[in-house]
Design a protein around this nucleic acid. Sequence first.
DNA 1: TTCCAATTGGGACGACTGTACCACATCGGA
DNA 2: TCCGATGTGGTACAGTCGTCCCAATTGGAA
Lengths: 207, 207
Amino acid sequence: MTTGTGRGGRTPTPRGERRRAALIDAAAAVLEDAGFAAVTHRAVAARAALPLAATTYYFASRGDLVTAAVERIGARHREHAHAVLHGLPPAPQPDEIVADVLVSLVAGADEPDPARLLTFYERYAQAGRQPGLRERVGAWTDELVDQTAGVLRHYGLPATEPLPRLLVAMVDGLLLAGLVGADRAALRQVRDDVRQVLGAIRVGPTG
Amino acid sequence: MTTGTGRGGRTPTPRGERRRAALIDAAAAVLEDAGFAAVTHRAVAARAALPLAATTYYFASRGDLVTAAVERIGARHREHAHAVLHGLPPAPQPDEIVADVLVSLVAGADEPDPARLLTFYERYAQAGRQPGLRERVGAWTDELVDQTAGVLRHYGLPATEPLPRLLVAMVDGLLLAGLVGADRAALRQVRDDVRQVLGAIRVGPTG
DNA sequence: TTCCAATTGGGACGACTGTACCACATCGGA
DNA sequence: TCCGATGTGGTACAGTCGTCCCAATTGGAA
C-alpha cells in the first residue's frame, strides 16, 4: 500500500524499486508501440526481460500497470512541455515559429510521431470508459491549455479564454485528422494551418 | 465472394441476408455501447439472439465483422448528415443556429451522445493501426469537411480552404475534450464555442 | 413431392489472457 | 552467524477469445 509493492505494507528495496521502474518503462514502451490492448502482463515482462511473475508482484492488477504507464508517458509529456517553455525563443517571432512551438507543445514531442500520437488519442477513448483515467486526462488537457495561453501571451497574442482552449482543440483535431492521412505530410501540414490561424488572430479581436 | 456470405460463390437467401444484417446491427450496437474491444463473436451473437456459429458463417473473420459495423455506423452518420443538410433553415440565421447545425453535423446526431462519440474517436485510433480502416475514416473526414463548407456557404460565411477543415478539426477537438469533462455541460459548451468562432469569422478575412 | 444447396446450431480446439501459488534465492540487521 | 522479510521465477489454473468442424435442418426450385 505504501509505495505500491505487490505485498502488504512492506518496506521496498532500492533494487525492487528499480525493477518496478523498469516494468513501467516497458509498459509505456509497449503502450506507445501497439496500444492499450497490447499492454499484457506477458508483453510487458518480455519487454523488460523479466519473468512474468514480476508484473503481478509489483502491480496489484493489469489496470494498475496500465495506469502507471499512462502516468509515465504523461510525465514525459510534461517534461517536454517544460523544456519547450523554458527554451522559448524571445518575444518577437514570426508565426511560423510560434506555430511550431504550439504544435510541439500539444504533440508532446519536437516532431509529431504517429505511433505516439495514436496512443495519445487512444487515451481519450480509454478515459471515457474508465473513471480513474478520466480525471487524469482531463487535468492533462487543462494543463495544456494553460501552457498554450502562456505561449500566446509571451508572443503578444490575445490569450483570453476561450481562445487558448479553442486553439488546443483545433490542434488536437488536426493531428487526429493527420493520423488517418496517407503520409507524414498531413502531420506537417498542421503547422501551416496553425500559422494561418495565428495570423488571423492577430487581426480579429475574439478568435 | 459475391455478396459476402461466408462460404464461396453461393447464392444467398433473403432470410440469410436478413440474418447477416441483424448481425451487423448487433455488432454496431455493441461497438457503440462498449468499444472495439467488446465486439467479439460471442457478444455480437448474443446481442442478435443468434447462435455463435452464425457470426463465423456470415463473416470470414472478426475484422470483417468489425469493418461491417463501422460502415453501418458510417452510413447512419451519413444519413443524419443528409437529413441535416436538407432540413437546413433558410439563409439568414443567427450564429447560434449555424453552430447547432455544424456540431450536429460533426457529431452525427442531433444531440452529442458520449457513448457514440467515444466510439467515433476510438475509430481514429483503430484506423491508425489498421490500413483497411484508415482509408474509410479518411474519406469520412473529407466528406464532413465538404458538408461543413456547404453549410458555411449557405449562410454566407467564408468557406474557402482551409477554413472548413480547421472548423471541423476544432469541433472534433472540442468534442474530444468534452468527453473527458465531468458532465454533459462540457459537451453543450461546444456549441457556444463554435458560435463564438463563427462571429469572429464574419469579421476576420481568412479564419 | 423430391432434392440439394443454403443454413443452422452445438460443440470443440488451441491460443491467448489475468492472476494465484509456491519453492527458492537474497540480503540486511540482530 | 542466523533469520525473517523481501524479492524471484517457474508453473498452474480458470476463463475468454477466434476459429473450425460436422451433423441436422430448411426452403425454394425442379
